[in-house]
Design a protein around this nucleic acid. Sequence first.
DNA 1: TTGACATATGTCATCGTTGACATCGGCTGT
DNA 2: ACAGCCGATGTCAACGATGACATATGTCAA
Lengths: 332, 332
Amino acid sequence: MTDVAREVGVTAKTVSRVLNDDGPVAAETRRRVMEAVRRLGYQPNLMARNTRVGARDAAIGLVVPELGNPFFGTVAGGVEGAVRARGLTLIVGSSDETAGHEQALIATFLARRVSALMVVPAADGDHRHLRAERVAGLPIVFLDRPAAGLTADCVVSANREGARAGVAHLIAHGHRRIGFVGDLPAALYTRRERLQGYRDALDAAGLPFDRALVETGHDLEAAARATLRLLALPDPPTALFAGNNLASMGAVVALTRAGRKDVALVGFDDLPLAEALDPPLTAVAQDPAAVGAAAAGLVLARLDGDRSRARRVTVPTRLIVRGSGELPPRTI
Amino acid sequence: MTDVAREVGVTAKTVSRVLNDDGPVAAETRRRVMEAVRRLGYQPNLMARNTRVGARDAAIGLVVPELGNPFFGTVAGGVEGAVRARGLTLIVGSSDETAGHEQALIATFLARRVSALMVVPAADGDHRHLRAERVAGLPIVFLDRPAAGLTADCVVSANREGARAGVAHLIAHGHRRIGFVGDLPAALYTRRERLQGYRDALDAAGLPFDRALVETGHDLEAAARATLRLLALPDPPTALFAGNNLASMGAVVALTRAGRKDVALVGFDDLPLAEALDPPLTAVAQDPAAVGAAAAGLVLARLDGDRSRARRVTVPTRLIVRGSGELPPRTI
DNA sequence: TTGACATATGTCATCGTTGACATCGGCTGT
DNA sequence: ACAGCCGATGTCAACGATGACATATGTCAA
């Protein structure tokens, strides 16, 4: 910046004024500064700008469990769009679903003095350590899953209600033994909520809850094995409810491998190829981009000075009926 | 930091020494400093650290076209793993496949003084403006697609060879009219390479190249429409080659909707549900995580002082035979 | 005993940028 | 014609951290 100033014959302060549209600058000076900036290829140093007291970086930190999972990718995309419109930069990091990595990422984001923090908490995360930051006024919003040990803004899908609707759909088609293929770990918020929705639907229909019908797998192959275990039970389910996108894919793959096109299936989370499957997959569709956008909206409101108390936003889900959920129960 | 120092009764410099393991510090002082750090919840300000001349931020900037596309998500995951092991932070931004957004992102990364830049270039990007940075020694690596107008490190998949193998597979099963469903825009590097591989295979078999058999769509639905256009030709193809993951999904969806299980299909890029489709999808599998990891490896080598000239790394692809590519040609 | 050296800590300046305040002409209104 | 003001620019300090160099205390060999 000093170089640019020297080139034009003014002080760094004047250059700063030009670049920030701050204070009066003669049109001619402005022109010459701009020209020198271009000629020298000068780029302001954002790091230095932010050393001044209390200054915050024009970046927002987002922590997701896995970058490779399209669900979180789409969430991040939703956040990015909303945030970019405000001239803020989104910094994304992946916690690998590990509390340790999550804390490390949050620490580097804080050290960078991001102006807000958005977190999809790892299953075993703990966010009490963020209380001080929250009190200090840093906007913190949790996505997809609420914070552990901290009252904070939060945007989640209608997990319980969505799962209830999906399972009720199976019950309405005559099923009485319905398997649940869920996420690992069992303590994961989304899994607990969806399992609760599953139980709600059973209760409403007067059906018993059978712990043996709940199986678990944390990736596609594990979910496929979980599905096969359910099918191998002495009194197997005639329908399955899959608790997330990987579980859905695992269940589809397992049913295909086992040649069991007669088992009804409803998945939580829609899949791009849902309609191309045989039978086409009935799904409880989430709207991950909307979750991201809603969270970004909350953050921006907080940045604009909204000091109201922590809010929880629930993004609705939608049951998409395609065929796999309407198969009649068939005893083997 | 001054607060911590005052608390312990030393200078900021001593605290700095403790935190950076730099220079000799008495064990007792170190202990008291650490304790004060913990008690006050002090966190070093990374921004300030980087104001000193030539200092670089311990972050690497990664630009991808779309966060929501699982291909790029997986690439980013591969990068992140390799980079984290070195204590570097990965900053990801999405260019929305737009040259303007891409430039803006790169500019903010540079302003943040990232220690390296990794870019999946937007289709219409231009990277001449990065020449100065490259000369100045900033490691810059391009992923999935090479830079435009700049000689730089680059990691790509074996697009041409992979496509050739996929199309040759269809030819080996008797197909003579093979449609190509590709990406938009036509200028996109990966599309050009894969189309070239398609032509290579035709040439090798002495088959003519028919421009009418090349169709295009930039998302799943557009690819589905492109597929239907091919099937509606007067002399339609008996097999299809899809040029990327979205095109594959679009083709699968279109064939399903049209009830055309007799059309052979090979997709570039494997899909998680490939084996659950009917017929199961034969695919040329890329290894996106390996692309990311290889690029990260290049960056780390450059950071370690490797000044050799720009390298191009090609990550091999693998043909996975499952059924859809082995259907015999059937005239309608 | 002394000087050479190591250890432990402090002092000062600096990075690039921007707030707070100062300066210096010229213009306006009376 | 002069006070008062505004526009244009400059001066200075400060942000938080760390390199370069200085100082103070202790240790040991000659």
